[in-house]
Write a protein that binds this DNA or RNA. Structure first.
Lengths: 224, 224
DNA sequence: CGGCACCTTGAGTATCCTCAAGAGAGGTGG
DNA sequence: CCACCTCTCTTGAGGATACTCAAGGTGCCG
């Protein structure tokens, strides 16, 4: 495959943090204060192997959680939209990188502030819910990844519609390459599948990045 | 596909719980006492849709976590070996069933005992670690499921070896059908791939359920 | 010894990938 | 404002991987 994500651009944002084009750890004083960080498109929030000291909440934009294999292939495990929290790890380092799909801003929270203050390393109710939801969504995505290409694309379109409510035309903030690496298929198959949906009258493609669902029932049928 | 798991047999175990051949909830007094339950091969520990009140730890045998689709197809999300804890859910009901691959015994723990007693629904350190490990393993399995059939089978064999240390010949407690539903392939492909490994001198098949790894390095190469 | 699962092997096929080329769309500079 | 450049997306043709359907072998248990 080799879908390369090109080097991060640099951010223009009032009093912004430096965006790291390659993976070097954030060094932010562990004060427990929340701080908001602006991330340029394709820049990293954190890289694979970085120490996992913080959680992050998306304020605006879209974040992808991904990993690069030795052959350069990229796997995307999740997209995160405003309100989503990401960065939770079982180890003390990140096993996946977090990169901005679009220009984005995220709030970081020191992890030890989020964990229960009882000293035994447990989690508060809020953090616990985030972890369980994360687990559940990962399982659903894993199970979905066993269906046909058409079913996975249909599920993806429906999920994008759900994540961006109130939009008549559903924006796809990410490229075909991002979608392909998330759904584990090639960009050609993503494109062909969307074309097929269009030819069947299930969707309309206002542009490559804007989809109108014409027949939600049919789309659900394909997704099922 | 339609890999059917046939109805549960009944258990023979001193003072055993009744094994439920179909999904009806466990009604065990929420005393918080740990109780050990014997499960016959192919019987359920809990079914999809059952209330998720308890966690379970495998004492002996092997448990599969699975779900059946409308067309009868089965997806297995995990196998659990002695020492593993399972049954954690984001919702208050189980989204997957847990079934015994072999005759097994599990210890159940009332969930509200495992959760922090601070009343805000957080998790103690132990439970937190279990959740994070679960998340991490699910992610790894999801990422692995994107590789070739040969790579996935190799990963599976290596994982079985790792989970059952001290065994010269690695036992495969589960059927080809179980393996296929876990790795998202057909039983024919599982069988052909193992045959191929044997013909290449990578493994020896003492029997269909007993594997000897002859060339660990080659197997790791295939898995990579 | 027979029956019944489970497993293996074979032949043909479908889905999706690879390689390749052309069409939009957006941004920059003249 | 237009031309051009580049990146992204679409479309096409051919091929590889894994599936489907089918038959035969193996082993376990009564």
């Amino acid at each position: 495959m080799l879908n390369t994500a090109l080097p991060a651009n640099v951010v223009e944002f009032p009093k912004s943090q430096v965006v790291r084009p390659n993976a070097t750890p954030h060094r932010r004083p562990d004060t427990g204060r929340r701080s908001t960080i602006a991330i340029a498109a394709n820049a990293e929030v954190f890289g694979e192997g970085d120490p996992a000291n913080h959680l992050y909440r998306v304020e605006s934009g879209v974040i992808r959680i991904c990993r690069y294999l030795v052959d350069g292939e990229r796997q995307i495990s999740a997209f995160h939209f405003p309100g989503d929290v990401f960065g939770l790890e079982a180890e003390d380092f990140h096993r996946f990188a977090a990169e901005a799909v679009t220009p984005a801003s995220v709030t970081s929270i020191a992890l030890h502030d989020a964990l229960a203050p009882d000293g035994c390393g447990g989690a508060t109710g809020e953090l616990w819910r985030i972890a369980l939801r994360s687990l559940s969504e990962t399982l659903e995505h894993m199970m979905a990844s066993r269906r046909s290409a058409a079913a996975r694309v249909a599920i993806f379109v429906l999920k994008m519609a759900e994540r961006q409510p109130g939009c008549e035309e559903i924006p796809l903030p990410m490229s075909r390459s991002d979608i392909a690496d998330y759904l584990d298929m090639t960009i050609e198959t993503v494109s062909r599948t969307l074309t097929q949906f269009r030819e069947e009258g299930v969707i309309r493609l206002a542009s490559a990045r804007r989809i109108l669902i014409l027949d939600p029932h049919a789309l659900n049928g394909i997704a099922a």
